[in-house]
């Protein structure tokens, strides 16, 4: 999705479509819709940067739920119990999660994928374990109330605006990062560690920087999550929620930003729309994940791109023996 001129038009259309969709929930005047949209927006703030990690560098982090929880508790404690300014507390949560990301990533990002997936799984479990155990800090299973933000963002609509603004900012940052040299760097690390090394790209450091960035935004998302829920308990941060973040990226497609966005929105909406699915929610995530991995490893983003680019590109990919002069010509003229 790195945008050469030919692809920019659909992207502009997509951005406009998203901007319009974002406006819909407040216009309905239904508080529940606004709430759902806010929560999806909060999730997206986390998913957008997790996508850089999972989709671009190919690092399988399943434990971002732990960072979300730490962000949420930091915000609730600093802004609620201690009485800090809300924005300052939000920022503190982000910084704390970024530092934890650094500490966690430093030893584990050098390891093969499964090791890292296991370490992050364990991290997610540990955080919920500690949130339950350290009652003096987190109030244990009773949970704690989360404060709201000051005036313009205090109402549900206002808070939704704040989440949208931060979400847009994070998306913009990710998009810039993905289409700059960094995007190429990250994908090089994902597709071939050896090739990346030979080009002077340090894989572990690249992953670490992305991990720290995603930790920061997970912390921010955590603070916003606390406010959106208005009351947090350790139960709010289930492993299944972490799974949702992860699955929406995989089904959305790696190396794309719009794909995971659509994935995140759809996966969050489907259980809301079909009430009976809620019980089977996690089973459903697993089934979708398996189906995507087996049938379309590139995710729906790739599928859409394949359909969208028409039969010409499709056939040239399929045969791929002779030179495709049409595409070559197109590529040269594009330069």
């Amino acid at each position: 999705m790195v945008g050469p001129a030919g692809q920019r038009r659909p992207q502009t259309i997509a951005a406009a479509a998203i901007a319009l969709t974002v406006l819909v929930p407040p216009l309905t005047g239904n508080l529940y819709y606004v709430h759902v949209a806010t929560v999806i927006g909060v999730y997206w703030i986390l998913i957008a940067t997790l996508n850089l990690l999972v989709g671009y560098t190919g690092t399988l982090s399943i434990g971002h739920i732990g960072l979300l929880a730490i962000g949420a508790y930091t915000f609730a404690i600093l802004a609620g119990t201690v009485g800090w300014n809300s924005y300052l507390a939000l920022l503190a949560g982000g910084v704390l999660c970024a530092s934890i990301g650094l500490l966690l990533g430093l030893p584990s990002l050098r390891l093969p994928g499964f090791y890292f997936a296991m370490v992050t799984t364990a991290f997610g479990l540990i955080v919920s374990e500690l949130a339950l155990a350290e009652g003096w800090l987190t109030n244990g299973s009773v949970g704690m109330a989360a404060p709201t933000f000051p005036a313009p963002f205090a109402s549900p609509d206002g808070f939704y605006t704040l989440v949208t603004l931060i979400g847009a900012l994070v998306t913009w940052l990710c998009w810039n990062l993905a289409r700059s040299m960094w995007g190429g760097r990250m994908m090089a690390v994902r597709d071939s560690r050896i090739a990346a090394l030979s080009l002077g790209i340090p894989p572990a450091r690249t992953k670490l920087i992305v991990f720290v960035f995603s930790g920061f935004s997970a912390g921010i998302a955590g603070g916003l999550f606390a406010t959106s829920q208005s009351y947090i308990t350790p139960d709010a941060f289930t492993f299944n929620l972490g799974l949702y973040f992860f699955v929406s990226i995989i089904i959305g497609g790696r190396g794309s930003i719009i794909g995971p966005f659509i994935g995140a929105v759809l996966l969050a909406l489907i259980p809301e729309l079909v009430g009976s699915l809620q019980k089977y929610g996690t089973f459903f995530y697993g089934a979708i994940l398996l189906a995507v991995v087996l049938l379309i490893p590139g995710g729906f983003g790739e599928l859409a791109a394949r359909i969208g680019s028409g039969p010409k590109a499709g056939t040239s990919d399929a045969t791929g023996t002779g030179p495709d002069l049409g595409r070559l010509h197109e590529a040269i003229t594009r330069l």
Partner: peptide, 13 residues
């Protein structure tokens, strides 16, 4: 790395 995902998916199911 796909097998990490597929075995995870099956385990969840």
């Amino acid at each position: 790395h796909l097998w990490v995902l597929s075995t995870l998916a099956l385990a969840i199911m």
